[in-house]
């Protein structure tokens, strides 16, 4: 199919983009990397009246180091994250996870802000951001505000962004030397969306403390299971009884099935990825 007609704007400043996006008399849609929006438009599942292309906004691109965090512009592409020394050094979980996200040609265009704003529950990035305790800076003509990643993803393709609001940047705390990270996903084919996946951040490994465990591909949003984190808090990740107790805690969550796996299978696979991610952290 071909895209339904739309009005195209490519503002050269964030201020102009925000004015365009603040219009409430028409369906205005921001275009970031386009790796999800363009397929939906090509299938005519999305038919915005106006498309505001953010790709000329250099001010939204880039990876900057601050004292305690890394500030990533919303229009920073996955490939730039992959290539970044700052990311490698300070956000090791990104470096583990990025090669699993789609395919090279998609990562060359797809942006971190676009992924966050789309809030696809099967995607890796929302889960990574919650696990890393990232903060999302949203901006609109009324100004900026900061939203913790854990409060940002509200449901299937649903975020805390208001109408006319854009993601400006995402700030990710720098990993400390004692922090440990885990990531595991089950995809039927390399680069596919996961049947189940998990991202884990721990302040300490032995014993486990300050855990954030976030699943993706198993619900209508990234699933931050505090019950698991609590079960594991202060324990050893090599203690199989404890790990099994943590796995049982997933069973109390209500997971969502999809075309290829029902809720029971999702629950089982979530347990498997948790076990394997923890095992990976032990290694």
């Amino acid at each position: 199919m071909k895209v339904a007609d739309f009005h195209y704007e490519r503002p050269d400043s964030l201020a102009k983009a925000l004015v365009l996006l603040s219009r409430d008399d028409a369906d205005v849609q921001a275009l970031a990397g386009g790796q999800s929006l363009m397929p939906m438009m090509n299938f005519r599942l999305a038919q915005p009246d106006t498309l505001v292309d953010l790709n000329a906004l250099e001010e939204l691109r880039g990876i900057r180091e601050a004292a305690n965090h890394i500030e990533i512009g919303a229009m920073t592409r996955y490939a730039m994250l992959e290539a970044s020394d700052l990311v490698r050094k300070h956000i090791p979980l990104f470096s583990i996870a990025l090669p699993h996200i789609a395919h090279s040609a998609i990562r060359n265009r797809g942006t971190i802000g676009g992924s966050a704003a789309l809030a696809d529950p099967a995607a890796e990035m929302p889960a990574l951001l919650i696990a890393l305790n990232a903060t999302i800076t949203a901006v609109s003509t009324s100004g900026e505000r900061k939203i913790a990643a854990k409060d940002f993803f509200l449901g299937l393709y649903e975020t805390a962004l208001d109408e006319g609001e854009l993601i400006k940047s995402i700030s990710v705390p720098k990993a400390l030397i004692e922090n440990r990270f885990g990531f595991y996903e089950l995809t039927r084919r390399h680069g596919d969306y996961a049947m189940a996946g998990v991202a884990i951040a721990a302040q300490h490994m032995a014993p486990l403390t300050g855990l954030r465990i976030v699943f993706f591909g198993v619900s209508d949003r990234p699933l931050d299971v505090t019950a698991i984190a609590e079960t594991l808090e202060g324990q050893s990740a090599t203690d199989t009884d404890i790990v099994e107790a943590a796995c049982r805690a997933i069973g109390n969550q209500s997971l969502h099935g999809d075309l290829n796996a029902d809720a029971a299978t999702k629950t089982h696979l979530a347990q498997v990825v948790l076990r394997r991610a923890l095992r990976g952290m032990n290694a």
């Binding site: 490519r10 386009g34 790796q35 363009m38 090509n42 292309d53 490939a79 040609a105 060359n108 265009r109």
Partner: peptide, 13 residues
Amino acid sequence: GVAVRGCLLLAVQ
């Protein structure tokens, strides 16, 4: 210089 999907990029981009 980078490989991209030609169907996901508008010509105008």
